Computed example of a mutant assay.
Amino acid sequence: MTVSKFLIFTAAMTVSASAFAAGAHSDGHGHGHGVNIGKPGDASKADRTINVEMHDNYYEPESIEVKPGETVRFVVENKGSLVHEFNIGTPDMHEAHQEEMQMMVEHGVIQGGKLNREMMAMDMGDGHSMKHDDPNSVLLEPGEVREVVWNFTGKGNVEFACNVPGHYQAGMYGEVNFR
């Protein structure tokens, strides 16, 4: 790598580190602005399990119903050909998170149907990374299966969405309806 390319790369990583340090990827992405969407749940205390399939670019099921206080274990499987995300949040949280996901594409972390896990683990400064390891979210390559266990403590406009650039806009989100 030439010195100029290294300096450009270092500057880009510094900008990303600052953006991530400003409230990304921690405690449910940190964009709730005081909205209570819930909290991580205990799998051994889950009230029920919902299987979620991610396709290119939709979820099955397209919406879910929950009771306030209910703990749900989501078993999420990526059946698409692209990297997809299952993220629980508000529309505002998703909008803010989409900017972070765009940076993950720009820095080569998300590469169509592949994740560069080495880049995800790289220290972006001040101990921040692009690990995408928040309790309300999973980012999966095609064929991967992971769980999200979530306790829905609040009411409001909550949805699950894929924030990989363009996926939300293509309709890859679903409603969480409180009953």
Rank of each mutant, 00 (worst) to 15 (best):
D133L: 12
S26Y: 12
D92I: 06
T14D: 10
M103C: 05
N177T: 13
N36M: 15
M103D: 09
M13H: 05
R48N: 06
S44P: 04
H132F: 12
F86C: 08
F20K: 05
E144V: 07
M124F: 08
K45F: 05
S137C: 15
V105M: 08
S63Q: 14
M172I: 01
H31E: 12
G108Q: 04
K45M: 10
E65P: 00
E95Y: 13
S26F: 14
K114Y: 03
S63E: 15
H31A: 14
M130F: 15
E147Y: 07
K67H: 04
R48P: 04
H132R: 05
N163R: 04
A24M: 11
A17E: 08
M13Y: 07
G38F: 08
K5N: 14
V149L: 10
V52K: 02
Q102M: 14
A121H: 09
H31R: 12
E141R: 03
N136L: 07
E85F: 03
M93H: 10
V176R: 00
K45E: 12
D133K: 12
I88D: 05
T2D: 14
G23A: 10
G166M: 03
Y59K: 03
M130K: 09
E60L: 11
S63T: 13
E106C: 05
G23D: 07
W150C: 06
I110L: 09
G127R: 11
G89F: 03
A11R: 12
R117E: 03
G113R: 02
F9W: 13
Q111A: 06
F86H: 08
G127Q: 11
A17L: 11
V176Q: 02
V109P: 00
E62S: 14
L7F: 13
I37S: 07
N116P: 01
A22V: 03
H33G: 15
E144P: 04
N136F: 08
Y58G: 00
E144H: 09
N116A: 00
K114V: 02
A12V: 13
H107M: 14
N177S: 10
W150S: 05
G80A: 12
G156L: 06
F178T: 12
E175W: 04
D42W: 10
M130E: 05
T10P: 00
C162H: 02
S16A: 15
Q98V: 13
H94T: 04
A22H: 10
G108Y: 03
M172D: 01
G28C: 15
A17C: 09
Y168V: 00
A24V: 12
S4I: 14
E175G: 04
G23M: 07
H25I: 11
H107V: 00
E106S: 14
K39N: 09
D134A: 14
V72E: 02
H33Y: 14
W150T: 06
D134P: 05
V72Y: 02
V66W: 01
E65Y: 08
N163S: 05
